[in-house]
Design a protein around this nucleic acid. Structure first.
Length: 112
DNA sequence: AACTTGACGGTCA
DNA sequence: ATGACCGCCAAGT
């Protein structure tokens, strides 16, 4: 049937599993899928998340620095930050404070 | 059909 | 410690 959508669907699946008040990185998701260096593709999947019927909390996904790289993709440069703060997250200078503590690793939590 | 770009990450110089 | 390049997968032009 369809081909190539597997990667995106898996990414959406993992992102949808991110607990409230937690965040993860593109690389962590990519690694969970088996392609640690395909992190850019993960970000691309986020961009295509609107195509998914599932609700994708993309605001909980940031780069490995905890920086809100895709904040500009939420319809506003501050929307992503507002969403994260709304979940108890602390954002400073477009960066997640205590990112390590808020970090949610699918490989670790889901135990592949 | 081919080349370039993209919400990243890691390694090398 | 800082800067630059390569690798990965898919989509857009």
């Amino acid at each position: 049937m369809k081909s190539g959508n597997d990667f995106f669907e898996q990414v959406w699946q993992v992102v949808a599993l991110i607990p409230h008040g937690r965040v993860t990185s593109y690389g962590a998701i990519a690694r969970y899928l088996g392609s640690a260096q395909a992190s850019r593709t993960v970000g691309y999947a986020m961009n295509a998340s609107h195509a998914s019927t599932v609700k994708i909390p993309a605001h909980r996904v940031v780069n490995r620095n905890g920086l809100l790289t895709g904040k500009n993709w939420f319809g506003g440069p501050d929307v992503m930050q507002q969403l994260l703060e709304s979940e108890g997250m602390i954002i400073e200078n477009d960066k997640i404070v205590d990112f390590e503590k808020r970090f949610w690793d699918p490989n670790k939590e889901l135990t592949v």
